[in-house]
Design a protein around this nucleic acid. Structure first.
Lengths: 242, 242
DNA sequence: GGCTAAATATCGAGT
DNA sequence: ACTCGATGTTTAGCC
């Protein structure tokens, strides 16, 4: 182990030794991982208990904690960023705790056996570049409104109404007000309810002198959503993100 | 490294050596982790690109893949369970891929440098025991319906309607039909829309001979949700999971 | 801080 | 495989 080393690891360490490594890692802002047989208790917004088993534990320098089993994409237990990690040895067993207030939440990991412990010094200046999102769909429609309907003229995005902000506020060829609700993927009844609330709020605000049209723009809709659209006199246009 | 060893690790391995360890880990159903400087590309439902940085990579035996930076509870890139992991060395760099069909998704991780590689043999027979959920709230109400209202008699749970399954279907002291929609936490307008769809569907189904009441049961509601409840003639009862 | 909506949401049950 | 609704959703943006 040298000073410039970015990785520090131990295999089958004694509890005291593992505790030292974890404590040093936390102190210097490293990412700490543990693997071994452990039990996990959570108390906070809900409560959970996990009997002993082999799991992989990650403690991040931003305060996040993750407990992963060999299955699933989601951690079996976790703690969000902003928590405080502490480590101790009690009765010959390694104890890792991650806690926060507001809301009061407590995660406690008790190791029967530590098979591996590591601390990684991380440097990651890069941001994720993601495309194919709802924002991309909005750009596509603002670029080429005719994809939705000939003669459509966008007037504003994120226009405020008492029911919340409308994705795209527009006018059709006949000068009628049009509300566009965008979804990047197949939608259910929730999105129809959202669009309907916007249309009703705008109709009220504009005193219903001009008819307000509501158009849901998404790749597709579920059967129930299509039924709801018909009932409420709303429209649907099939369009995907670029 | 002995046959019964549950952990195999390497610090600063050459690409070939790391590739061997990862390949053996995948083959025997171990959980494999890598730490080092890598770039990540994703193509599938969306597309993303992540320039080189220090990250922690997990490959699970069920086909899940996780790429974690030093920040956040969520992985910066991931692949769900059911994917196939492959590893190779090309041009002196370690390449990890995780792919699946339906939908077609591809994750590619290119390591400039591997700081640490490990394979863990996992045995975890235990299930998580979780309480304080919506199911617990339902149990509480079925045990003591008077918590919602005196004289309330639950008749069915998950009763089917054209708008979906109702959480609790009941009768009040006056013999009127009551629909209960349960939420374990503070709710917004979406839940009101959901309850309203159930009430309307049941009123239609029962030919509106008896009035159908709708009650939202949750710890609390947002202002807009309360407004919507009033507009639609629905009710609210404050109740939390045990 | 409260409220609202998005997400490569994920996950599980039912059809 | 698709649909639908719950989640300790998480995360981000806005008022």
């Amino acid at each position: 182990m040298t000073a410039e080393s970015a990785v520090e690891t131990l295999s089958y360490p004694a509890p005291d030794t593992a505790c030292d490594l974890v404590q040093r890692g936390i102190d210097r802002g490293a990412m700490v991982t543990l693997f071994g047989r452990c039990a996990v208790e959570y108390e906070g917004r809900a409560e959970s208990s996990l009997a002993p088993g082999d799991r992989h534990v990650t403690l991040k320098p931003d305060g996040a904690a993750l407990v992963h089993t060999d299955e699933g994409q989601q951690p079996v237990n976790w703690q969000p960023p902003g928590c405080e990690h502490t480590v101790a040895v009690s009765d010959g067993t390694l104890l890792v705790r991650s806690t926060r207030e507001t809301p009061a939440e407590r995660l406690a990991i008790t190791f029967e056996r530590v098979a591996h412990a590591a601390a990684f010094d991380v440097s990651d200046p890069e941001d994720l570049a993601l495309t194919g999102t709802e924002a991309d769909l909005k750009e596509r429609i603002l670029d080429t409104p005719a994809l939705v309907e000939d003669g459509l003229t966008p007037l504003a995005t994120e226009r405020e109404t008492p029911a919340g902000a409308v994705d795209i506020y527009a006018e059709d060829a006949a000068g009628r007000t049009v509300v566009l609700e965008l979804k990047r993927r197949r939608v259910g009844p929730d999105a129809v309810g959202q669009l309907d609330r916007y249309v009703e709020a705008l109709a009220r605000e504009l005193h219903a002198e001009t008819e307000v049209r509501g158009i849901l723009v998404a790749p597709s809709v579920t059967d129930r959503a299509r039924q709801l659209l018909a009932e409420k006199g709303l429209e649907f246009v099939s369009l995907e993100p670029p």
